[in-house]
């Protein structure tokens, strides 16, 4: 059974509102006056390299770090004044799977539920519902320490949902997971969001942010350097576009990379990936190239703008701006 979400009970116009948030660790300023808003029901991504200030921001918003400056509201509750109330309506999945090693899966979930004030009977019911939802029903009696990394991550996610939170904070949810487990966690996040849950996700994984998030804020050295939907970011920062093309027979790669409109080409299995500086000119060049050499053009497909390229470009520009 799908766990119920409380998004419709939300109060305040935004799930999260942050204005000029500041955090110091001694003399080092980890977060330097960031501001952003997260709408109810959206998946908001905080993307940035290691040490950018992502985890510090999440920690400030859920009470694990003090706020040194600025204002923050979570689910309509002002921090730190109404922190205890805010804690009651948020779920947090930290960057490490830190449930209790010696407790079974079911005991871990029941404990989490009871800490939110849910009675024992209802806690058990919800715990079993979540185990079923996460495909962990058969592991109910297994100790947390006996689970694989991927299953530990899923159970930690389940523990953050026992009280039907309004907002879910996910700090690097797929860190250290293999591709299969990563995809499985992505599917769960999409499923939870489609059921109305607001998700605040931090990641340094570019494809994760571009795959899952409705909106992304890119953070670097404690500052938000860009924000928007994945499509907007691609459009805003795209200077080149990637095209996948296949010829029969396949020509030498050097012959392709020198064509007008093409800045780079590399082989990827049977096909060739082309980074085009001018997409229209590149397609025209490729068609002419095939005609002149008597090659069969099997297919040509746009791969859009590579997320990684957008990310690196934004970070590059933010460094240049600061310099």
């Amino acid at each position: 059974m799908m766990p119920k979400m409380n998004a419709k009970l939300s109060s305040g116009s935004y799930a999260i509102e942050v204005k000029n948030l500041v955090k110091f660790y001694g003399d080092f300023q980890a977060v330097r006056g960031i501001s952003f808003k997260v709408a109810w029901g959206e998946v908001f991504g905080f993307l940035g390299p290691n040490g950018a200030g992502k985890t510090t921001t999440v920690k400030m918003l859920c009470g694990l770090a003090k706020i040194d400056g600025g204002n923050a509201r979570v689910a309509g509750y002002e921090l730190p004044r109404e922190l205890k109330k805010a804690k009651g309506v948020i779920g947090v999945v930290p960057d490490i799977s830190n449930l209790y090693a010696e407790l079974s899966c079911i005991d871990n979930l029941v404990f989490a539920a009871r800490m939110y004030g849910i009675n024992k009977k209802e806690s058990k019911k919800r715990a079993y519902e979540l185990l079923e939802f996460f495909g962990l029903k058969e592991k109910a009696k297994a100790k947390f320490k006996a689970l694989s990394k991927g299953l530990k991550r899923k159970l930690t996610l389940a523990a953050a949902l026992v009280h039907n939170p309004k907002i879910l904070f996910l700090d690097e949810p797929t860190l250290g997971l293999d591709v299969k487990s990563k995809r499985s966690v992505w599917r769960l996040i999409r499923k939870l969001n489609s059921n109305g849950l607001t998700v605040f996700l931090t990641t340094h994984n570019i494809s994760e942010a571009f795959e899952l998030c409705h909106r992304i804020a890119i953070i670097d050295k404690g500052l938000i350097v860009a924000r928007g939907s994945p499509a907007e970011l691609r459009k805003q920062f795209a200077a080149s576009e990637a095209v996948e093309v296949s010829f029969a027979p396949s020509p030498p790669i050097q012959a392709i990379s020198g064509l007008p409109g093409i800045s780079h080409a590399h082989r990827s299995g049977e096909s060739i990936i082309i980074v085009a500086s001018d997409i229209a000119l590149a397609v025209e060049s490729l068609a002419r190239f095939a005609r002149e050499r008597g090659l069969k053009l099997n297919y040509i497909a746009s791969k859009g703008v590579e997320a990684e390229e957008v990310f690196l470009k934004i970070l590059g520009e933010s460094v240049a701006e600061r310099a």
């Binding site: 859920c62 009470g63 694990l64 109330k85 804690k87 490490i96 830190n98 209790y100 090693a101 800490m115």
Partner: peptide, 14 residues
């Protein structure tokens, strides 16, 4: 050491 104490700080308890 294990980081699980942090969990208690996330619950609505003083």
């Amino acid at each position: 050491r294990m980081g699980s104490f942090e969990r208690l700080l996330l619950y609505p308890i003083s």
